[in-house]
Simulated assay, not measured.
Amino acid sequence: MTTTARTYTVKLVDAQGLSTAQRSAAELRFRMALDFALGGPEYVLPALQTCLLVRALNEDQPPESTPEAEQQVIALWEKAEADAIMAAFKPLGKEMGDARFVIRS
Rank of each mutant, 00 (worst) to 15 (best):
V73F: 11
I85F: 08
A87S: 11
M1T: 06
V102L: 12
P41N: 15
I85D: 05
I85T: 14
T3R: 04
A82R: 15
A47T: 14
R55L: 10
L76A: 00
A80L: 01
T7H: 05
Q22T: 01
I103M: 15
P63M: 00
G93K: 04
T9V: 13
A99V: 05
A69P: 02
M32P: 00
A84E: 03
A75V: 09
D14C: 08
Q49M: 00
F30C: 09
P41E: 11
L45W: 12
A15R: 08
M32H: 12
A26N: 02
S24C: 07
A37C: 04
D98M: 03
A21V: 13
T4M: 07
A69E: 12
P91Y: 02
M86Y: 12
D35S: 13
T20P: 00
T9W: 05
D14E: 14
E78P: 03
R29L: 14
E70F: 01
A25T: 12
L92T: 05
L53F: 08
W77E: 05
K79Q: 13
A47S: 13
L12C: 09
E95H: 07
R23K: 14
S24Y: 00
G17K: 06
A47Q: 09
F36Q: 13
L53K: 12
E27D: 03
K79E: 10
F89H: 03
F30S: 03
P46V: 00
E81N: 12
R6Y: 09
R6I: 03
P63L: 12
Q61M: 13
R55C: 00
P46M: 02
T4N: 09
R31P: 00
K90Y: 14
V73D: 12
L76S: 10
T9G: 14
D98F: 02
V44D: 03
G97Q: 09
A87L: 09
A47I: 09
Q71W: 10
K11Q: 15
Y43R: 15
G40F: 14
E78Y: 11
V102E: 15
A33L: 07
F30N: 01
P63K: 01
G40R: 14
A26F: 05
N58C: 13
L28A: 15
R6A: 15
I85S: 12
Q71I: 09
C51N: 04
G39M: 10
P91Q: 06
Q16L: 13
A47R: 05
M1G: 06
L12E: 00
T20K: 07
Q61G: 08
S19N: 01
P63Y: 03
S19L: 04
D35K: 10
T9M: 08
V54F: 04
L92A: 04
A37S: 13
T20V: 01
P63A: 14
A56T: 11
W77F: 10
M1N: 04
L12A: 03
T50Y: 06
E68G: 08
K79S: 07
P67C: 10
Q49Y: 04
R100L: 07
L76V: 02
